[in-house]
């Protein structure tokens, strides 16, 4: 394991609905990128920690994403699992917006 992070350009902020999420695939892995109600952006691992279900299809309300399968929920800013059956936290990655472009630090 190296802890080298690489910044990758992922999408435009306007590609993501406000209070919404978008799937982003990179180097054989999948992620979810979120746009908060205040237009801040965040990035987490794409799949729920309960089963391999993509969170980008989940409902985003405030800073919470709900898994579309069994309603497990996470705080997408910290990755914290908020509601069962999800009990393992999600991995998070740094994200930023520069000139309308969303970049995420993966690694």
């Amino acid at each position: 394991m190296s802890n080298l992070m690489t910044w990758v350009s992922a999408c435009k902020i306007d590609d993501i609905e406000q209070e919404g999420a978008l799937r982003f695939d990179h180097a054989g892995r999948t992620y979810a990128i979120y746009r908060g109600p205040d237009d801040s952006v965040y990035c987490t691992a794409g799949l729920c920690t309960h089963e391999a279900i993509h969170l980008a299809e989940g409902l985003v309300m405030d800073f919470e994403v709900e898994c579309p399968k069994h309603s497990g929920a996470f705080d997408y800013r910290t990755g914290e699992a908020l509601r069962l059956p999800a009990c393992e936290n999600l991995r998070t990655y740094p994200a930023e917006v520069i000139d309308g472009e969303v970049r995420v630090a993966l690694g």
């Binding site: 993509h54 299809e57 989940g58 409902l59 709900e66 579309p68 399968k69």
Partner: peptide
């Protein structure tokens, strides 16, 4: 897949 999940919620 989960196409209808968000709206059901």
């Amino acid at each position: 897949g989960n196409a209808i999940a968000k709206d059901i919620k």
